[in-house]
């Protein structure tokens, strides 16, 4: 994923965001590539690439990420439209899911030995 602005590394990121475009031309956008390796499986993030538009991004993704039959389907997404959870609140964000062992089948032990449960 591309970096988005966060308080601690703002300096580095501002630099990246404002890095001058190559002289006299526009840099092609960054696209994230997701590949489905075979039917029945989800698309998995494979990496990124540059392309001027979605049509070319899809073609570049085929050539870059599926040269050895790694895929049966490819998604490309402009990196800039991906939102991600805030790394700064890493503890808080995922804390709620911790410790709720009753959400898992292994929590229930009385039924041990009883079939089809």
């Amino acid at each position: 994923m591309t970096q988005q602005q966060s308080s601690q590394n703002a300096e580095e990121l501002t630099m990246a965001a404002t890095a001058p475009e190559p002289e006299g031309e526009t840099a092609w956008g960054l696209w994230e590539v997701f590949v489905r390796s075979s039917r029945g499986l989800s698309h998995v993030h494979a990496g990124s690439l540059h392309a001027p538009d979605a049509t070319m991004a899809l073609r570049n993704a085929r050539d870059l990420y599926t040269r050895r039959n790694e895929g049966t389907s490819v998604w490309v997404v402009p990196s800039e439209v991906i939102s991600s959870s805030d790394p700064d609140s890493k503890g808080g964000y995922f804390e709620s899911a911790q410790g709720k062992s009753y959400r898992h089948a292994t929590y229930y032990t009385k039924s041990e030995g009883v079939k089809h449960l």
Partner: peptide, 25 residues
Amino acid sequence: QDEAGHGLYLYSAAETLGTPRHVLN
């Protein structure tokens, strides 16, 4: 051709650190 691909996988990794490919180039 693979080597071009490997270069691209690595630029892709480097870009996640906040430096765009055209700057690296």
